[in-house]
Nucleic acid binder design. Sequence first.
DNA 1: AATGAATGAGGGTTCATTCAT
DNA 2: AATGAATGAACCCTCATTCAT
Lengths: 228, 228, 228, 228
Amino acid sequence: MTATSPAKVSQPRLRADALRNRERIVAAAREMFVEHGAEVPLDEIARRAGVGNATLYRHFADRSELVHHVALSVMDRIADRADEARAQESDAFQALRRFVHQAADERIGALCPLISHSPDRGHPDLMAARDRLNASIEAVMSDARASGQLRTDIAVGDLMVAVTQLTRPLPGLGSSPRAHDSGCGSVCMDFDRFVHRHLQLFLDGLATPARSELPGTAATLEDLRPTT
Amino acid sequence: MTATSPAKVSQPRLRADALRNRERIVAAAREMFVEHGAEVPLDEIARRAGVGNATLYRHFADRSELVHHVALSVMDRIADRADEARAQESDAFQALRRFVHQAADERIGALCPLISHSPDRGHPDLMAARDRLNASIEAVMSDARASGQLRTDIAVGDLMVAVTQLTRPLPGLGSSPRAHDSGCGSVCMDFDRFVHRHLQLFLDGLATPARSELPGTAATLEDLRPTT
Amino acid sequence: MTATSPAKVSQPRLRADALRNRERIVAAAREMFVEHGAEVPLDEIARRAGVGNATLYRHFADRSELVHHVALSVMDRIADRADEARAQESDAFQALRRFVHQAADERIGALCPLISHSPDRGHPDLMAARDRLNASIEAVMSDARASGQLRTDIAVGDLMVAVTQLTRPLPGLGSSPRAHDSGCGSVCMDFDRFVHRHLQLFLDGLATPARSELPGTAATLEDLRPTT
Amino acid sequence: MTATSPAKVSQPRLRADALRNRERIVAAAREMFVEHGAEVPLDEIARRAGVGNATLYRHFADRSELVHHVALSVMDRIADRADEARAQESDAFQALRRFVHQAADERIGALCPLISHSPDRGHPDLMAARDRLNASIEAVMSDARASGQLRTDIAVGDLMVAVTQLTRPLPGLGSSPRAHDSGCGSVCMDFDRFVHRHLQLFLDGLATPARSELPGTAATLEDLRPTT
DNA sequence: AATGAATGAGGGTTCATTCAT
DNA sequence: AATGAATGAACCCTCATTCAT
């Protein structure tokens, strides 16, 4: 079900431990980006991954390359969720609902700064991942549209951007690097509950019959590139 | 209509030119925060305002104090929009729609990092501005609820957080932090049209009859403080 | 008894309030130098004097000029103490003891950084004040030497430098700028008592018969200029 | 004889070059503190040590940490001098004289601003170094007292503070903070000769029989802490 | 391959000094 | 004459990135 292998195939062989390091770095980076924002010092990421900082640089030449790979990883996992939802839910709109809430739990919101920051938009790997993601989500939406439950004036880009925005971490929440304490606990939890409320409301707005006319035009993920 | 005067009165007299500088700094900061995020170098803000960096520090002792005042300014302007919408629209839900779109145009999304970053939450000025904002929005929502067009399971906090998130600038759009050009050009426009689409969809989800049950509980602006 | 007038005569007439400001500034500066060291911000001195910062600059073109005048003031007061001690004590060595302890109470220790920092050593005013001070102290020492109680291998420069050093404020004591509180109280008191102990011991070392041979040669205040 | 090793052992292993850098930084800092006071720009210290500024910060997180280590180093060297003097001089008071003059040559005077500025007074390392220093000096003084040559109304604290004060560098001598030359040339030499004269006089005051009664009470090094 | 260490460029903030009212 | 305001240079410290072991 996971489609991570094709991308990796192009890499030169890695020693087993090197590969493990690489994955620990990406995982650590994803967590740090979600918890502390896209500006976390790379040294902190290396520390969290349990490797020296130079090891991080051996794998990823600079910050944007790391971001690039985290973005790949997140997109892949989200596409997986879309595929799962479509396979496992009988009701088409319910599959859409499930996917959206799960995408939030995959911290899709953290993707936003990643994608935006990346100078490599247009990189083949990213485009491939984006296309796979686009296809997986389009399938879910298509089913829902076909079942007559999803309004027809929106496209994948609309959904992804809105969901990404609604699930972005509020900066300053999450424990700040300096505050070793404390109490973000309940706030974060509350924030998550908040997020799912908002997603639910947004999903309600997607259902038929459409209750308003939308300005602008429906956008696919391709449209999200700068040059459009 | 604007309630800005009382706050200003309490300040010790400022010379005319100093006051003009102060306001130019706040205006420049709001623009820079919106375009480049809450991390923009203060020196850039000073340059944009046309003053030396130390002048900025004379007016605002540190970054958080500047953020604090920008937040006050934005909250006040948004409350003004709410009051206007309520006064000028005959249909209650239409007033809500108008307010939400205008809040987006006031760049309410830029508030998010500002509010979150501020170490002064709980500061009397901020609480006062928040309370005024809360009251103004609550009036709009209350009307809509009374007219039977707004679902009853959401509160001011739900609306504000969702709208804030949906209108947050995508980091890296607009000019990149390093590129001083600022010509965000067509992407921004596109992004703005995107935003209004999403707001429209979200508003559709707020209308009656409710199409789903919401997780969590309705939240007011007060609930958005850490200690709750 | 005070010999301050001659120096001031050369100044152009000052309005009464301007003169009062000038003196308040010098007094504030002396206190701040003693309490917080020679590096205190000039704005703080102006504040303590109850004037605007620019007023300070109208009177003293830059930091070193202020230091210059504080030094004059301190030297004058200390010379006054020497004259008094000589006039009022019958025993010559006792006059020396009295003078040394009173010089400490006049915060002669604060002079050290002042004199050293001043780029104007060699300025006529300073040389005049120094010469007067030298003469007043030499008179006290001369008496003590004549009475056979003071060893003959030391000169004014030895006494002044040693006393200055022994009474210098310990940096970091006194209330630090940030610590608005607090408890330097007893420490400072203790430090003062310390100082008088050390002065006493040093004075004991000055008495006849000499208990050791001194390295180097006796120095007058003139010898303390850089070029010697 | 030196007791520096135990402290070093507790550090995590350092690479040979890193250790060399660390020591060069401490040495450069000691020299700069002595010559230009405790306020010298850290960047200058780094330059003098021949390393980049960030290297200094890698080893010492901030100014006070550097000060802390310089203080440790100086205290240790001075304790060494005390031990040596006691071991090598047959006459007890002569050992005291020798120690005092050598402490001056170790620039003990530079310690004063260091110790005072340190926010870490009470830090275990500093207390340990202080205790060792205290014990070494007490041994010297004890011998002298036992031989009947040292007055009995003074303690270690008296000696250390007085000697520190008498040997403090005159700020502005040596090169001025701005002048990078450093050629303190003849003035310093003169100043050094001065210092040894004063120390000699002070030592004469310490000898028996006591020539005066001292105000205050004898103080140990422990008494020099703020809370006493 | 992996790592600790080194580095320079940049941002935040303070302060001596000058300017405009 | 007196003042509040403005300014730029300097300093402390951080962090992305490169180097040497």
